[in-house]
Computed example of a mutant assay.
Amino acid sequence: MTSHPLRTSVIGSYPFPGWLEFASSNLDQFGSEDIKEMQDDAARVAIGDQLDAGLDVITDGEQTRFDFNLSFYGFIEGIALEAASPRRFGPPAHDQRGKHAIVGELAAPRGLGAVEEFERLHRLAPAGTHLKVSVPGPYTLAGRLAPNDRYADRYAVTEALLPLVRKEIEDLLQAGAQEICVDEPSMSCYGYREDPRRFVDIFNRTVEPARGRARICTHLCFGNFKGHPVGWRKYAPLFPAFLDLHADEVHVEMANREYAELDVIGPMSQRYDVAVGIVDVKSYHVETVAQIAEVVRACLKFAPAERLVFAPDCGLSQTARWAAKKKLVNMVRGVRSVRESLGVA
Rank of each mutant, 00 (worst) to 15 (best):
Arg120Val: 06
Lys167Thr: 03
Pro196Leu: 05
Asn224Arg: 06
Tyr192Lys: 02
Arg213Gln: 15
Ser188Glu: 01
Leu106Tyr: 07
Phe239Pro: 05
Pro109Arg: 00
Pro237Asn: 10
Pro109Ile: 00
Ala236Ile: 10
Arg197Phe: 07
His122Glu: 14
Ala127Ile: 07
Asp149Leu: 12
Gly137Glu: 06
Phe222Leu: 07
Phe225Gln: 11
Lys226Met: 12
Cys217Glu: 11
Arg110Ala: 14
Cys181Thr: 08
Ile169Met: 07
Glu117Ser: 14
Arg123Glu: 06
Asp95Tyr: 14
Gln178Glu: 15
Leu112Ala: 09
Ala152Met: 07
Thr140Ser: 15
Leu161Val: 13
Leu173Ser: 03
Arg211Met: 10
Leu172Glu: 00
Ser188Val: 03
Trp232Glu: 14
Glu117His: 09
Val182Asn: 00
Phe239His: 06
Leu162Ser: 05
Gln174Pro: 00
Phe203Lys: 12
Arg166Asp: 05
Cys221Met: 10
Leu141Thr: 11
Arg233Gly: 06
Leu121Ile: 12
Ala142Ser: 13
Val230Met: 10
Glu194Asp: 14
Gly143Asn: 13
Val157Met: 01
Lys234Cys: 09
Phe203Gly: 09
Gly111Ala: 05
Pro237Thr: 13
Ile102Thr: 04
Glu168Met: 02
Pro126Trp: 11
His122Asn: 13
Ala108Ile: 02
Glu184Thr: 00
Thr158His: 04
Val207Cys: 07
Pro229Asp: 04
Cys181Ala: 15
Pro147Cys: 11
Arg150Trp: 08
Leu220Ile: 11
Gly176Asp: 05
Tyr155Ser: 10
Ser186Arg: 13
Thr206Tyr: 02
Leu141Gly: 11
Leu172Pro: 05
Thr129Lys: 04
Arg144Gly: 07
Arg198Leu: 11
Ala177Tyr: 09
Glu194Trp: 07
Gly113Asn: 05
Ala177Leu: 11
